[in-house]
Design a protein around this nucleic acid. Structure first.
Lengths: 140, 140
DNA sequence: TGGCATAGGGATAAATTTATCCCCTGGATA
DNA sequence: TATCCAGGGGATAAATTTATCCCTATGCCA
């Protein structure tokens, strides 16, 4: 396995939290699991652009960091469900804050992000199904 | 300049916010600037482990993303001051949330992060001066 | 039997981000 | 005249993170 070579700063809270949320799909995974999208196959479907392999890797890290728990049902076909731990739940207000700030400033952010020359391409209308599921759960 | 090759997801708020805060020192920079540590030389001193070069790069990105403003005083020796923009200020509750969650769960997080085999070394007691300055400003 | 679904992971390539090296301006100081 | 301060950045190396490829296993359905 890969081993870090540069020291990781863990002095202030910001860096600690950053380390936990550091991963392309981690915040989205935590949010998805919090709204009961808990099976690997659901998660990949709901986060298009991701792959099983990549999500597995990030899920394992979240698990190692104690944010989620994995329950494997000894069935065939296999069934796996993730859920937030207590400390994982305590992160949700933070995740929500990140989410809301981004949504609240969407038009501004899209502009500045896309005018950034280092950006080649963006992929949108991706979490649609994901949002739909969230809405359905709120209604249901 | 480098150009992104894979599509950047910007569909949900989480991804938008992530893009803005994506950078090893960005959350810490925003926080520092918010408590009036605004000159480049102060920032490097207060974020040990960082270098001028690296901070310059991240500051420029924050500036391009509209989170901070840079004021250059036409003096000798040169003087530069960064400050948060309005939208930058609107991020502070989020930054604070990240910071507080990390601090509140410090002992747990330090444990799980350091037991992670991919972690080689951590650097602590680093933001001390930084915290000291924050405290002084609160008192003063 | 072929294909699709469930779930998982090793190995490696590619992409992205950080770090390092070195050079620049101009004034003050040892 | 060195050296340090303030400020800045191009070029490139190194580190880190993501993506891709391909193979594992079992059961169901056409």
């Amino acid at each position: 396995m890969y081993e870090r070579k540069t020291p990781l700063p863990i002095d202030c809270g910001l860096h600690l939290t950053k380390e936990v949320l550091n991963g392309k799909w981690k915040p989205a995974l935590l949010h998805a699991i919090s709204i009961d999208i808990k099976r690997p196959s659901e998660l990949v479907r709901v986060l298009p652009g991701s792959t099983r392999r990549v999500l597995n890797v990030q899920l394992r890290e979240l698990e190692m960091h104690g944010m989620i728990e994995k329950k494997t049902y000894p069935q065939l076909p296999p069934k796996v469900e993730y859920s937030l731990t207590e400390i994982g739940w305590s992160l949700m207000p933070v995740i929500d804050a990140l989410n809301q700030w981004g949504d609240a400033n969407r038009s501004f952010l899209e502009t500045v992000i896309m005018q950034d020359p280092k950006i080649g391409e963006t992929s949108k209308s991706i979490c649609q199904e994901y949002r739909q599921m969230a809405i359905e759960r709120k209604i249901g």
